[in-house]
Simulated assay, not measured.
Amino acid sequence: MYKIMTAGPTQVRENVRMARSQECTNPDLDQEFFDFYRETCGLLSKALHTENEALILGGEGILGLEAACASLTEPGDRVLVIDNGIFGKGFSDFVRIYGGEPVLFTTDYHRPVEVEALSTYLEKDHDFKYATVVHCDTPSGVLNDVETISKILDTYGIMTVADSVAGMFGEPLNLSDSKIDILCGGSQKALSAPPGLTMLWVSDRAFRAMEARKTPIAGFYANILLFKDYYEQKAFPYTMPISDIKGLRTALDNFFEDQEVYQRHARIADAARKALTAGGIKLYLESGWSNTVTVLEVPEGITDQQLLYGMEKDYNIMISGCFDVLAGKVVRIGHMGENADPQKVSETLAALQGTLEKLGAQVSCDMADVFQQAI
């Protein structure tokens, strides 16, 4: 088995794996499971400091992004797509699928969204039902101030859909200090549960917008409104993946037990960037680095596939390549959740250096040593 130091999925702790092996019940009929599900959702709300209802959906994190757009978008709706990364731009596809008109606010992919520039833009055009924005755009690792952005949008009555799949649980996020209406997360990133679950936090305003639609939601599996009042009715829209949810619950317990989770992520991310730059490796971003994933440019003279294959073959460590406009140009190290561990990141940097040097690239220092000193 490879050591997965990718930008998600992340490594999974033993107690999470064991929780998923517990005996199953019938989640459609067992009243105790409805309590367990609601309690777990309550912990999700507590983790992000909000009274907004949290939901767990049976599907990988992308399901949440589509469900948010499916549930809010009606034909002809103008939707502001804040685009400073591949996933940021990707929201436009979901908006278009459900009949909306995506309007892109595109900025430099090498840095975060500038809130002043967004404010200036909105002064001239703010006729949008909702806007989409990504907290940590995983392909580039850029971190956007979604709390502030949501407040700016709210001044114009624009709802916010935020993707924090690769941000939450590794980056501080306080929903009570924001105007985010639908927040999307995934189980396989900093929470370090296996892939397969979407988490959503939904405001009352978002539910009201869904209920006030003039047209039905064009979907079933991506229809958030079907979850409203699930507990009172003791009915889920579809059979819940009970083993996955039990694993998620244990991963949440692990998160709450870690009193320095955000400080640990920040220290490791900062030390990793210092080690890479000291080694002469160019980071993709100019500013706005996240604490969950670091993205570095592939040095000239080698390919991303050579680098990825070399690390897997010689060191048994897997990191991520990229896709779309960054395909072949960068590779990504995930240091989130269980991967945000000094020993694991040090081993990854040593493997990266060994592979680069074997491929003929020069590295200016012992990057693992620099990392250990910086940590």
Rank of each mutant, 00 (worst) to 15 (best):
E257L: 06
A327I: 00
L352I: 04
E260G: 06
E260C: 05
G328K: 12
G334N: 11
K329S: 06
G328I: 02
K282C: 02
A269D: 12
G310L: 07
G334T: 01
Y309N: 15
G279N: 12
Y309C: 09
I302E: 13
D258Y: 12
A350C: 05
E300P: 03
L276C: 02
I319D: 01
E297R: 11
A275H: 07
A266F: 13
N291M: 05
Q263I: 05
Q353P: 04
A271E: 02
I281Q: 14
Q306E: 15
G334C: 06
D341K: 08
Q259S: 15
R332I: 06
D304H: 09
Y309M: 14
A269T: 06
S320R: 10
A350G: 03
V261G: 06
L356T: 01
Q305Y: 09
G280R: 05
I333N: 07
N291E: 09
E286F: 02
I281L: 15
A275W: 07
D314E: 15
E300F: 07
L359S: 01
D324L: 05
P299T: 02
V330E: 00
I268S: 06
V261Y: 12
T355E: 10
I302M: 10
D258T: 09
D304K: 11
K344H: 02
L349S: 04
L307R: 12
E357H: 13
V298Y: 04
Q343L: 03
E338M: 10
R273E: 06
A266E: 15
I333W: 08
R332S: 03
V293M: 03
Q305S: 14
P299F: 10
Y284G: 00
Q263Y: 06
L349C: 01
M311N: 07
D324C: 04
G328D: 01
T348K: 08
L359Q: 09
L276E: 08
K358T: 08
L356G: 00
N339V: 06
L326P: 08
G354N: 00
R267L: 08
T348A: 01
E300A: 12
E286M: 10
I333F: 08
K344V: 01
D270M: 08
K313G: 00
V331A: 14
T348N: 13
M311I: 03
A278V: 02
V298P: 05
H265D: 05
L356W: 02
V325A: 10
F256Q: 07
S320V: 00
G328M: 07
T292W: 09
A278H: 04
A275F: 05
G288I: 00
D314S: 13
G337W: 12
H335P: 07
H335C: 09
D341W: 09
I317C: 12
S287G: 03
I319N: 10
Q306N: 12
G301A: 08
S287I: 00
G279K: 12
E312Q: 15
L326F: 12
C322T: 04
A272T: 14
D270Y: 11
Y262F: 15
N316L: 11
M318R: 13
R332Y: 05
E338H: 12
E338F: 04
P342W: 01
E357D: 12
L276Q: 03
Q353C: 01
D314L: 05
L356I: 00
A351C: 11
M336S: 13
E357I: 00
A278P: 03
L307W: 11
I317M: 14
T292D: 14
